[in-house]
Each structure stands twice: as structure tokens, then as C-alpha cells.
Simulated scan of single mutants.
Amino acid sequence: MLTKVEGKLAVKLARDAIETHLKSGKNIDISEIELPSVFNEKRGVFVTLTKDELLRGCIGHPYPDSPLKYAITDSAISAAFRDPRFPPVRADEIKRIVVEVTILTPPKRIDASPKELPGKIEIGKHGLIVKKGYYQGLLLPQVAPENDMDEIDFLNHTCLKAGLEYDAWLTGAEVYSFEGQIFAEKEPLGEVIEKHFEKGSCSST
């Protein structure tokens, strides 16, 4: 778990990476930034951008394949400029964008029969990955409570995200769960808070 101070640094690093790329077209030089030791640990991470409460980009590293500091900056750049669903972020809109960083635990396959899967999922706590063959889809823990999904809805939408039939989790697809620690700006360039989700609600600290 990251502390509040480390979470604020994570969000600042993501925003700085985007702003540096906008100004110079280059990647931020992390070697010049002093960061706590946790940023050298390998962690999965996603960076989510929203503008006017609408998604503006979301890309990340599902698995702990690189040090957190590099995963954050790479995910931030990808969310801002490489998300195929959106045009690249422009310099004139970055001050209207809210930056959110989700630090992930390693995904673990849910050991249960298909009919038992919904009972193994805790809305607001778990994110999901669905895999089948070459197809894979991921939804972050905050997606279900933010969209009023129950466990079956969450499974269905993760399958659709993977490009599979909505009920692929009932017909042999592998389902993995993970948890996420979420830090986000309350408003563009604003105070950074840690978000906590419970079923049907959200709180912050």
C-alpha cells in the first residue's frame, strides 16, 4: 500500500509526464526526480484521464512488469496520446483533465466453477481480467461501482471488453481478480485524494 504522500506523488508524476510530453514531445527524465523507494518496486498500474466527468483515456500495465515510476509515466503517456479510442490530448485541454492513478495487486485466477464466480467477486474491491485464447479484457475495480454494476454485470462487461461474448465467463474463459489503490485529483490540478469504493457508494480520504 502507498501512503497518501506517495499517492500524491504518483498522480503528480503522471501529470508531469503528460505535460512534459505536450511541451517538448519528449519523455520526462525520471532520473532527476527524487522518489520514495516504493517507486522502484515492480507494480501494475493504470492511469485514467477524465474531462468534464467523461473518460478521456485509460491505459496501463496489468502486471508488475516494470518499476512503478516507469509504469506510471508510460501509462500516463499512453493514456494521453496512444489510447485508440480518443484523439491525443491537446495542450489547450490538459488543465481541464482530471488525472487518476490506480496501483494494482498481481492478478490471481479465481478458483471456482463458472456458476460460483459471481460469489467470489466483491464489488468495489476487485477488478477483473477475462482471458480466452488470444482475447483479454480488463476492467478496474472502480468501474463496477461507478456504473452501478452487480457481479454478473461486471463479468459480462469484462468479457465484452475482451472482445468475447458477454457470457464467455460461463463457457470456459479464465477469470482473474485483482485489487487497486486509487489516487485521483478531486478536480483538474486540484487536491489528490485516495478513493475507497463500497457497493453502491464512494468515499475519499
Score class of each variant (00 low, 15 high):
residue 176 Y to S: 09
residue 205 T to R: 13
residue 45 V to N: 01
residue 136 Q to V: 13
residue 113 S to Q: 15
residue 200 G to A: 10
residue 67 P to Y: 00
residue 38 V to T: 09
residue 178 F to C: 04
residue 125 K to D: 10
residue 99 V to Q: 04
residue 198 E to M: 14
residue 74 D to S: 10
residue 91 A to Q: 13
residue 110 I to W: 04
residue 68 L to D: 01
residue 122 E to R: 12
residue 14 A to E: 02
residue 167 D to C: 04
residue 158 T to E: 07
residue 67 P to C: 01
residue 49 L to S: 08
residue 59 I to R: 02
residue 173 A to W: 08
residue 93 E to V: 11
residue 68 L to E: 00
residue 28 I to W: 03
residue 71 A to H: 01
residue 50 T to A: 11
residue 196 H to E: 13
residue 86 F to Y: 15
residue 68 L to W: 01
residue 144 A to S: 10
residue 39 F to P: 00
residue 95 K to M: 09
residue 194 E to C: 09
residue 104 L to R: 01
residue 32 E to A: 12
residue 203 S to M: 13
residue 117 L to F: 07
residue 43 R to H: 00
residue 147 N to W: 12
residue 136 Q to A: 14
residue 61 H to M: 14
residue 53 E to S: 13
residue 144 A to T: 05
residue 2 L to M: 13
residue 202 C to M: 15
residue 116 E to V: 08
residue 126 H to Y: 14
residue 138 L to A: 12
residue 14 A to P: 02
residue 195 K to L: 15
residue 39 F to E: 00
residue 138 L to Y: 03
residue 38 V to N: 00
residue 111 D to L: 13
residue 45 V to A: 10
residue 18 I to A: 05
residue 199 K to I: 11
residue 85 R to L: 10
residue 159 C to I: 07
residue 193 I to Y: 14
residue 79 A to M: 09
residue 45 V to W: 00
residue 63 Y to C: 00
residue 59 I to E: 01
residue 35 L to W: 04
residue 149 M to N: 05
residue 115 K to V: 15
residue 94 I to N: 02
residue 28 I to R: 02
residue 40 N to I: 00
residue 53 E to D: 15
residue 14 A to S: 07
residue 142 Q to T: 09
residue 30 I to S: 00
residue 34 E to A: 07
residue 131 K to V: 13
residue 182 I to L: 04
residue 146 E to R: 11
residue 195 K to R: 15
residue 73 T to N: 00
residue 201 S to M: 14
residue 18 I to P: 01
residue 47 V to N: 02
residue 42 K to Q: 08
residue 36 P to E: 05
residue 111 D to A: 15
residue 153 D to Y: 07
residue 25 G to I: 07
residue 104 L to F: 06
residue 106 P to M: 04
residue 132 K to H: 14
residue 191 E to K: 15
residue 15 R to C: 04
residue 180 G to F: 04
residue 159 C to E: 09
residue 72 I to H: 01
residue 74 D to L: 03
residue 20 T to W: 05
residue 133 G to R: 12
residue 176 Y to C: 08
residue 6 E to W: 05
residue 50 T to L: 07
residue 58 C to H: 07
residue 65 D to G: 06
residue 32 E to R: 12
residue 131 K to Y: 07
residue 87 P to W: 06
residue 181 Q to S: 09
residue 23 K to Q: 14
residue 150 D to I: 09
residue 80 A to S: 13
residue 85 R to F: 09
residue 154 F to V: 03
residue 190 G to K: 03
residue 30 I to V: 13
residue 167 D to S: 12
residue 65 D to F: 01
residue 15 R to L: 05
residue 145 P to T: 12
residue 171 T to W: 14
residue 10 A to T: 02
residue 173 A to E: 07
residue 162 A to K: 03
